[in-house]
Amino acid sequence: MQRYIVKRLLQGTLILFLVSIIVFLLGRQIGDPVALLLPEYSTEEDRIRLTEQLGLDKSLPEQYAIFIWNALQGDLGNSIRGAREPALDLVLERVPASLMLASIAVFISLLIGIPLGVLAAVKRGSLLDTTARVLALLGQATPVFLLAIMGMYIFSVQLGWFPTSGYGRPEQFVLPVLTMSCFMVAAFLRLTRASMLEVVDSEYIKLARIKGLSERNVIWKHALRNSLIPVLTFMGTIFGRMISGAVIVETIFAWPGIGRLAYDAVMQRNYPVLQAVVLFIATSFLVINLLVDILYAFIDPRIRYSQ
């Protein structure tokens, strides 16, 4: 076990190293940062001083070493727009809003998706099953941004129930959370239904039935518990989609999270902030993946490593 964790840690470090190189080159790719940073009317002297200050007169590997050294101390440079705050601070400031949005959305999706999936599987072919299927198909066919705009049009423009944007008051949560939940509900529903169908037909459940356990007990306790494994696996891979969803949803609803921050950074060509966002996301991505993998290895080593 320890060897495995160490191995995965080394792998993670390697990936992070590669990401950091890409992120570093990102900053060099966009042209002359000095020109970007300097105020409009500045002298040649200012130029040279800033070039030296940023270390841009050194060789590329040296620059990278400086970049990493600073990054390890939490210094990812300053934003080149607005109040020139440290980029990392900007990112960390935005984390709670994103985390809040994501966790509520996941919670709601699980709450809706799993019971619906179980019911659809138990009452296979019923009206409920068909309705669930249509909803899942529609959910797949509707891009998140379209859903957001439709929600906005119906609930804000037509009905006036919820505001179109903002963060803080409870009613401002409704539309972003709903939008974020939609695709996950569809996914959880499909997964739960499929694995329920498989488990319900298995010997194990037949045995439970024969033993005379009540139907309700069999379905909701024994079958469900066994069908949750694929759902868990899916949870492990959901991070990327959440970030993608967050960029769109946060951008549309003006939600002050890291998705929106990334979008703004790109639009304003604010490379230190983009670097910080990417590094932050890559790191959390690797950490989460590592934790999930270790969790799996404890629960059941076969889930991931055998085909």
Binding site: L26, G236, T237, G240, M242, S244, V247, V266, Y271, F285
Partner: peptide
């Protein structure tokens, strides 16, 4: 297979943003 794991859970939109940036 490691590569697919990585690509599968990578945030697509963020990647697109970065590429568009570059």
């Amino acid at each position: 297979m490691r590569l697919t794991d990585l690509a599968f859970s990578f945030p697509t939109i963020l990647l697109a943003l970065v590429l568009a940036f570059v």
